[in-house]
Simulated assay, not measured.
Amino acid sequence: MIARIRNCLLVCAASALTAGIAYGESEPTALVDQQHCMFCHTRDAPFLAPSFQQIADHYRNMPDAQPMLEHKLRLGGKAHWGDTPMPPAAERGGPLSAQDAHTLVQWVLSQ
């Protein structure tokens, strides 16, 4: 019985790892929560703003997209998709370092 449970857990863990690889990098949950990303975005469907998958599809192969998106995350910017502009980080949850913006953009582009 214990061997069956262990095997089941190993299969479940392997499945979870495979799913994580298939869907991109693991979510930087603390940053996503701190910046209140999910107030306007979802992973796969537009809400108040485009989904992370839509953003990734649009910018993934665009040269210089990474620094442009990092800048927009930190300082905000006009609405490119719909009517909702991106507020600056200070209004979303506090200052956002260049490294944290880089981490968030890498994660979004991996969707």
Rank of each mutant, 00 (worst) to 15 (best):
E70L: 09
P85Q: 07
P46E: 14
T42S: 15
L109P: 00
Y23F: 15
D33R: 08
G94C: 10
Q111M: 08
I2W: 08
W81K: 11
E70Y: 06
P87G: 05
L48T: 02
N61K: 14
S15H: 03
W107Q: 00
M1I: 09
C37I: 08
A14M: 11
P85G: 07
A90F: 06
S97I: 02
L109G: 05
H102W: 07
M62H: 09
P85E: 05
C40H: 08
G93R: 07
A56H: 09
H80T: 15
L17H: 00
I2P: 04
H41K: 05
Q111L: 12
L31F: 10
P28A: 06
P67K: 00
L73D: 13
L9R: 03
A90T: 13
R4N: 11
A89W: 09
A3Y: 07
L96A: 09
F47H: 12
E91Y: 03
L17T: 05
S26Q: 08
N61T: 15
T18F: 15
S97N: 11
D44L: 05
A19P: 01
A16Q: 10
H41L: 09
R92Q: 03
Q111Y: 05
A65F: 12
A22I: 03
Q66A: 14
A19L: 13
M68G: 08
E91L: 12
A19R: 03
Q66W: 10
M1S: 15
P50W: 10
G76W: 04
A22L: 15
H36T: 12
K78Q: 12
L73G: 10
A101V: 06
R43V: 14
S15M: 14
C37R: 06
S110G: 01
L31W: 05
G76H: 04
A89F: 08
G94I: 12
S26A: 09
A3F: 04
